[in-house]
């Protein structure tokens, strides 16, 4: 794991919500293949009451990540800066 995956205070993050935990590994794979650092984390309670996971990425990667996921045909429920 690299230091920027640890969520240190210096890096600003965004989370991408997908439909379910079944979709998360697909999204993770697509992002990794595109060279975008991501980590699957529990969905923050204030974003959803869901028990599932979401993808945390660097805020700087947000636009590229969304393009990659669209191309990989991963449906997205929302993007939030955290």
């Amino acid at each position: 794991m690299t230091s920027n995956e640890q969520g240190g205070t210096s890096v600003q993050h965004a989370v991408i919500l997908v439909h379910s935990a079944n979709h998360a590994p697909k999204a993770e794979k697509a992002l990794q293949q595109a060279g975008i650092t991501c980590k699957l984390i529990p969905v923050p309670r204030r974003l959803s009451s869901d028990c599932g996971v979401c993808l945390r990425i660097r805020r700087a990667d947000q636009e590229t990540a969304l393009r990659v996921l669209e191309k990989a045909r991963v449906e997205i429920e929302g993007v939030h800066e955290i």
């Binding site: 439909h19 379910s20 079944n22 009451s49 869901d50 028990c51 599932g52």
Partner: peptide, 8 residues
């Protein structure tokens, strides 16, 4: 039943 998604 339970799917782990849309639990609300």
């Amino acid at each position: 039943g339970g799917t782990g998604s849309r639990s609300e």
